[in-house]
Amino acid sequence: MRKIYVIGIGAGDPDHLTLQAAKAIGRTNVFFLLDKGETKQSLIDLRERIIRAYSGPSRRMVEGRDPERDRTPADYTGTIADWRTRRSQVIEDLISENLKDDQIGAFLVWGDPALYDSTIAILEEILERGATTFEYEVIPGISSVSALAAKHRIGLNRVGSPFQITTGRRLAEEWPDGVDDVVVMLDAQQAFTRYPDADIYWGAYLGTEDELLASGRVEDVADEIVATRAAARDQHGWIMDTYLLRRRPD
């Protein structure tokens, strides 16, 4: 039976790789990489550096083209479902054509595979179709959320209080009920600007040499974050950022 590791590799700092992840990389025969285009080549490059540092000499790397998707769809749920299915077909082809029955394959996932990543769901979709069989194991990683809190030297929750992780799309609709501390990911529309009285702890390219940090009252730092974010996206062609938005006490 073929085996596949889904390995969380942290937010960008190679030192965030756990010992469990390093051992799994060392046991892997074939690494599967999805090419997201020239603007995100740096993401592929970092994965390749990690593979070379911890894998054996006989390992192989194979690449597939990540399908394009509409970033501003009218039907968000339907668009994501369609993209995920097309992506699963690319990944299934990579597995069936490149991984032998007695070999181990791996996908290296930014941050933690359980947090806003589709790899686990895609592997389940492939198994449900039944044409390609394998077993798989998930190796947790240090998420961008953990890295953000560490960089700003803060706790994500306050004493006796919960916090919630959500997306920029949902935050733009409303602040979640019942929480005063909200961690936001995937915020292309910069929804934090709707809440000028909150405090924000923001970070982009966390754990990399391009890391950017900012914090303060939204009213005071929003323009700086928006401008910094736009400049960084123009420079790199992509951006991954995360932030904690915290209501001030009455």
Rank of each mutant, 00 (worst) to 15 (best):
K3S: 13
I4W: 07
I4A: 10
I4S: 13
I7Y: 04
I9K: 01
G10W: 15
G12E: 02
L17V: 11
L19V: 09
L19S: 07
L19G: 03
A22N: 01
I25N: 02
T28E: 13
V30L: 09
L33Q: 07
L34Q: 09
D35F: 05
K36A: 11
E38A: 15
T39F: 09
S42D: 15
D45F: 00
L46G: 09
E48M: 13
E48K: 15
I50S: 03
I51M: 11
G56F: 04
P57F: 10
P57Y: 05
S58H: 15
M61W: 02
V62Q: 07
E63D: 04
E63Y: 14
E63L: 14
G64N: 08
R65C: 10
D66Q: 12
P67K: 09
E68K: 13
T72I: 10
P73Q: 09
P73W: 12
A74D: 14
D75C: 09
Y76V: 01
G78N: 06
I80K: 11
A81L: 12
A81I: 04
R86H: 14
R86Q: 11
S88R: 06
S88P: 05
V90N: 02
V90I: 14
V90A: 08
I91V: 14
I91K: 01
D93N: 11
D93R: 15
D93L: 08
I95C: 04
N98H: 15
K100Y: 13
D102L: 03
Q103N: 07
G105K: 00
F107D: 03
F107I: 02
V109K: 00
L115E: 08
I120A: 03
I122H: 11
L123Y: 08
L123M: 05
E124T: 01
E125P: 00
L127V: 00
R129Y: 06
R129Q: 09
G130T: 02
T132K: 00
T133Q: 13
E135L: 03
V138Y: 14
V138I: 12
P140W: 05
A147D: 02
A147Q: 03
L148M: 12
A150E: 07
R153E: 10
I154N: 01
L156Q: 04
L156R: 02
N157M: 06
R158H: 11
G160L: 00
G160N: 07
G160S: 10
P162A: 12
F163M: 12
Q164L: 15
I165S: 12
T166F: 06
T167K: 11
G168F: 13
E173C: 04
E174L: 03
P176E: 08
D181C: 05
V183F: 10
M185P: 00
L186I: 10
Q189S: 07
A191V: 02
F192E: 04
P196Y: 02
P196D: 01
D197I: 01
Y201P: 01
Y201G: 01
Y205L: 08
L206R: 01
L206I: 00
T208Q: 05
E209L: 10
D210R: 13
S215F: 08
G216H: 09
E219F: 08
D220I: 07
D220E: 15
V221H: 07
T228R: 14
A231T: 04
A232Y: 07
Q235T: 12
G237C: 06
I239L: 15
L244E: 11
R246V: 00
P249C: 14
P249W: 06
D250Y: 06
D250M: 03
